[in-house]
């Protein structure tokens, strides 16, 4: 789920930090700029792994900073497609389930990636799976006996497979004169989101597969 990315950038060191070793000062500046941020088509940056290469610091006209050209390796959160990871259920709604791994929570399981047949119990605010059921419509499913339902509750740890990831760059461009100064509020999309699936044997809440594991498998295949 973590990868190393090699990135090149020009970093300025403020005169106040000239007393620090250049290497330390650079790492601290890079972390300030990148840590906990999403890089488009790269992933979510965690922290600097190490510096690969750095030029001599140069002073430019206009400020007292030392500018370094640096090549460094960054630890990035970017699970690959088909990777299996553990995540916590953050919330459930009509569109599916939202997951979290603590430092990143734009992870979703859409309805189509839930084990079938399943439905949303609006009283519990949780989706449930009804194994070996003939029912297909949500209406029929909600009439089932509660004890047969296998709920995916909030806060539960689920094993999920990453199906896809999406990057959006929604930064607005400069305002056009013809449009005036009217501020339009658009729905903000997460810059990086991960689509996951639990519609497979072995995926879903961990207790499903720990207890009575053999029976489950037989039932599934039968």
């Amino acid at each position: 789920m973590f990868v190393l990315s090699i990135i090149k950038d020009t970093i300025a060191i403020l005169p106040a930090n000239f007393g620090v070793l250049p290497e330390q000062a650079l790492i601290s500046e890079i972390n300030k700029k990148y840590a906990n941020r999403v890089l488009h088509d790269v992933g979510m940056c965690i922290c600097v792994f190490d510096l690969t290469e750095a030029s001599e610091g140069k002073v430019r006209y206009g400020d007292g900073c030392l500018w370094y050209k640096v090549i460094f390796r960054m630890v990035v959160f970017r699970p690959f497609a088909s990777e299996v990871i553990l995540a916590k259920v953050k919330s459930s709604d009509e569109d599916g389930i939202r997951l979290s791994v603590g430092f990143f929570d734009d992870m979703y399981i859409p309805l189509s990636y839930l084990p079938q047949p399943s439905a949303l119990d609006s009283n519990e605010r949780a989706h449930f799976w009804l194994p070996d059921s003939e029912a297909t419509t949500p209406h029929e499913l909600l009439e089932s006996i509660t004890t047969d339902r296998m709920y995916i509750d909030q806060g539960e740890i689920v094993r999920v497979r990453v199906e896809a990831d999406e990057f959006y760059d929604d930064e607005p461009g400069p305002p056009k004169a013809s449009e005036g100064v009217a501020v339009k509020r658009e729905v903000r999309r997460a810059p990086y989101s991960v689509i996951c699936s639990i519609a497979e044997q072995g995926l879903g809440p961990i207790p499903w597969w720990k207890a009575a594991q053999v029976d489950e498998e037989l039932m599934e295949e039968g």
């Binding site: 789920m1 973590f2 990868v3 090149k8 950038d9 890089l39 088509d41 922290c47 630890v75």
Partner: peptide
């Protein structure tokens, strides 16, 4: 800013945890 290689190599969770603990 220029990305030279978005995925140079994979890291295991254990490696990431040791790195973060060191920082911490």
């Amino acid at each position: 800013m220029e990305v030279l290689n978005p995925r140079a190599s994979f890291l295991s969770n254990y490696e990431v945890l040791s790195l973060l603990r060191e920082l911490d």
